[in-house]
Design a protein around this nucleic acid. Structure first.
Lengths: 187, 187, 187, 187
DNA sequence: TATGAATGAGTGTTCATTCAT
DNA sequence: CATGAATGAACACTCATTCAT
């Protein structure tokens, strides 16, 4: 990868994450990257393709981190706690920008490459939570249900922390998730 | 309210809901409303103000509906079910467009009027769920926790239904919420 | 028609005629017209539509002039002479820019509005020559053939005067056309 | 000539003929030729030079074919017929793309190399028709006039077939040319 | 109250060409 | 002889907003 392309990707990652796909123009992007417009288009066929590439990279990083957490020998409930703590730290350090994947998908018309990336990423996150739930429930069906509850609490926490510009949704979701952990036979 | 202004608000509501704030231009808006450009700006000082007014109106409607559900004499768990069923029907009939409030806030820069409207709306929704939870838990603290769990499951369900273009998140969230209903003494 | 629109049309007519559709950009057009870019697009939905409008106007003018010549009480051969003389004068005064209709159609991809305008215009010119030929031949079939010969000599003259940047093709075509006039019974 | 250069010339010939000089970009050209951009500019100093070279080659080929027809021992009128039939076949098989030389000259600014090539080519075509006319007229002056009539009918036929996307202009021109063949004493 | 005309600043994208290797 | 990376200038077009009437 050429140095210019890397610079573009880095700048795009930062700007898209900060302000969202629509509010970042190509002009600002190339200026902050220090490249000419034509150079940009040599490396990315369109703004949308750049966005897809950025999200694919972010998804890969996120999945690596999730896998590492899953593979660690912490107790399952501790893994739950850590996952929520991580997103709490991210939100606090990013001014509650929310989920880059959901935010980006929202402004995409129709089914395009970006939406596909987002769908795949979200499917991966769901699988993470279900795998984690399997450490807490013997019954596969119960595990799936618990995993989805984790997943949706987590997603809701990020969305509402973004809306409220406050961290309480993450703490509430964590508490709810932990409450669910300890009740294997109640349903 | 003048007839023209009402027509603009109606059109805006429909278009914003369908495609999002950013993807709807003033030109299309006034053309579909059948008013002149200057007429539009006589009634709304900016596109953003129009958007805020639209969301304020939608929030009022939504709160009325929520209050009616709350005031009904259905059992609390049935109210939970109905709330989820309603959002399911909405998502199915809107091609999973998601939450208009969250979606709109996402594309707004900094703290502006629209974000404020969204925050207020979301605070109202949170209160709805907490009021509902109070019907299920004596302890105010437990009720708050349960209400937040409902709220975040609900929010996550809408977000992920939008991302997945599928209804399963709503059904999973409903199931999780119902499971939480029946465990008053577990925490 | 607003003054700005008229100015745009005038400028476009001049520039398109001088250098051709492709070699005239919107930026130059609006600058020379003294209007803002958005003003241009308020009046014309696209560069192509502007071009079509220009050609439609030019076609109307041309047809008026042709009809006047046809309706005059000159002898038919004199009408032929005049038609060729007119195009000679046009070519001499326009640096042999050639036929605006043919030139424009050449750079249009696919079937679009402009091509349609050109086709209609050319059909009108053909009809002019056939009507003129009817004054020289009793037999309708012979008149049609003679009219087409006039039409094609005329078209070829304009094309090759443009290529050669010289007037001889018009004179040669005129001579050939006149030769054809005087031989009603030879075929 | 290097293999790369030949490939570029071949591709350019095809693309320029199909869509015209302006609508073919260097990027597409080098991609379809399978060469790098810099390689292209090693062989051709500019897009315009490439175009000139292409047309020079095409002119040579065309002149060879014309000479062969002229040198054949067919009767002169038959040569006329064949020339028109050939252009008819070309137009039918090329979707009435018209005369590559005229078309290209039209989109060239000022007097440049390409226009010169086109002028030379057209002069050659004129000479062909005049040579052919000499087989039909003893008087050199009458032969020149007849040759020009052929030339202009031919040119007009190609232009108007392109405009009309129909073959009738060629057939009409052929008929007119044949009519002229048989009238040696009329002028 | 209502309007049609006009605007400056911006959008994303493509052009033919050059340079360092 | 060949290349991938880089470029400045231009492309057609759209944005939300304002003004004179």
């Amino acid at each position: 990868m050429s140095e210019a392309k890397q610079r573009i990707l880095d700048t795009a990652g930062q700007l898209f994450a900060e302000r969202g796909y629509e509010l970042v123009g190509i002009n600002e992007l190339i200026e902050k990257s220090g490249v000419a417009k034509a150079t940009f288009y040599q490396h990315f066929r369109s703004k949308e393709k750049l966005c897809a590439e950025w999200l694919r990279h972010a998804a890969t990083e996120s999945e690596k981190s999730a896998r590492a957490l899953l593979d660690s020998d912490l107790p399952a409930t501790e893994k739950v706690v850590q996952k929520f703590n991580r997103v709490r730290d991210y939100l606090l350090s990013s001014e509650f920008r929310g989920c880059a994947f959901s935010n980006t998908a929202t402004v995409m018309t129709e089914d395009n490459e970006v939406r596909e990336v987002v769908r795949d990423y979200k499917a991966g996150v769901r699988l993470f939570w279900q795998a984690l739930a399997l450490e807490l429930r013997r019954d596969p069906s119960a595990a799936r249900a618990l995993g989805d509850a984790f997943f949706l609490l987590f997603s809701g926490a990020v969305t509402e922390a973004q809306n409220a510009k406050a961290i309480w949704p993450v703490e509430s979701a964590k508490a709810a998730a932990l409450a669910l952990c300890g009740e294997p036979s109640s349903s």
